[in-house]
């Protein structure tokens, strides 16, 4: 099954069809096998620059695996995954590291370097790229996610919501082209989930490609009210475009 998926750029008013050669992430007949059977199969899709997608499906359906394939944490057992038009199989370990600097990832159980303060954790992508963080930019970013007062706090002292927002700040500090979020609101209350969603929508309006794996249908409905998001659903190891039943 091939899904040609569109996206939103700018203020969310211009709809762009994905076209050959400009997809940031492309799956071509991809399968993934954990050894105990096939988890994903026959997946073909292209995520256009500036698009906003949700990925849904029951627990264990393969959402996290799909996301890991999107940032080359896993390699497909069959088919082809291309990130920014480069086949991941042809990437060296250094190439993968460089590619990940263009992809911000937010996990449900977002992990940090617990011995370093929040500000240092947020600037970690810059540090590993041998770039000096701009203090004003960092302050702006922490204010944007509402964590300016916690710059010196150690990660273990942060609440779930604060950790999610810190992870989002870390994910966007390199101004990546793509942001992948795996159940980012899984541990958050509704108010905090909406706040995080607002941040993701703002990023999308800046032109970032967003892919959020979630089983929270309310969140998806809320997002669709703000942005032209598309919903992908994993069912029977395959990915489908979800319809109006959402």
């Amino acid at each position: 099954m091939r899904i040609e998926s569109g996206g939103v750029l700018g203020n969310g008013v211009r709809h762009v069809r994905a076209s050959e050669g400009c997809a940031v992430i492309a799956f071509d007949n991809v399968a993934y096998n954990y050894g105990g059977g096939e988890l994903l199969s026959e997946i073909s899709l292209r995520l256009a620059p500036g698009s906003f997608h949700f990925l849904t499906g029951p627990s264990g359906a393969g959402k996290t695996t799909f996301l890991k394939l999107c940032y080359a944490e896993l390699l497909p057992t069959a088919g082809r995954v291309a990130l920014f038009d480069r086949d991941v199989r042809g990437l060296s370990r250094d190439d993968i590291a460089h590619t990940r600097r263009r992809i911000g990832v937010v996990h449900q159980d977002c992990q940090f370097l617990d011995h370093l303060p929040l500000a240092t954790n947020v600037t970690l992508p810059l540090t590993v790229s041998n770039r000096e963080p701009d203090v004003r930019d960092l302050t702006d970013l922490l204010q944007w996610v509402g964590l300016a007062d916690l710059a010196d706090a150690l990660p273990p002292s942060l609440s779930g919501g604060e950790r999610q927002r810190a992870a989002l700040a870390r994910a966007v500090i390199m101004s990546p082209d793509v942001i992948l979020a795996d159940e980012p609101t899984g541990n958050l209350d509704w108010e905090m989930s909406l706040r995080l969603l607002t941040l993701l929508v703002e990023l999308n309006r800046m032109g970032k490609t967003i892919l959020v794996a979630t089983h929270d249908l309310n969140l998806i409905r809320q997002a669709k009210a703000q942005v032209a998001a598309r919903v992908l659903r994993i069912r029977n190891r395959r990915i489908q475009l979800a319809g109006a039943d959402l």
């Binding site: 940032y71 370990r93 250094d94 590291a97 460089h98 590619t99 990940r100 600097r101 990832v105 992990q111 940090f112 370097l113 970690l124 992508p125 590993v128 790229s129 870390r170 390199m174």
Partner: peptide
């Protein structure tokens, strides 16, 4: 965990 985080944010080996 440190290595996982570093790899996630694009650190080279």
């Amino acid at each position: 965990q440190v290595i996982k985080v570093l790899r996630l944010v694009g650190a080279r080996d």
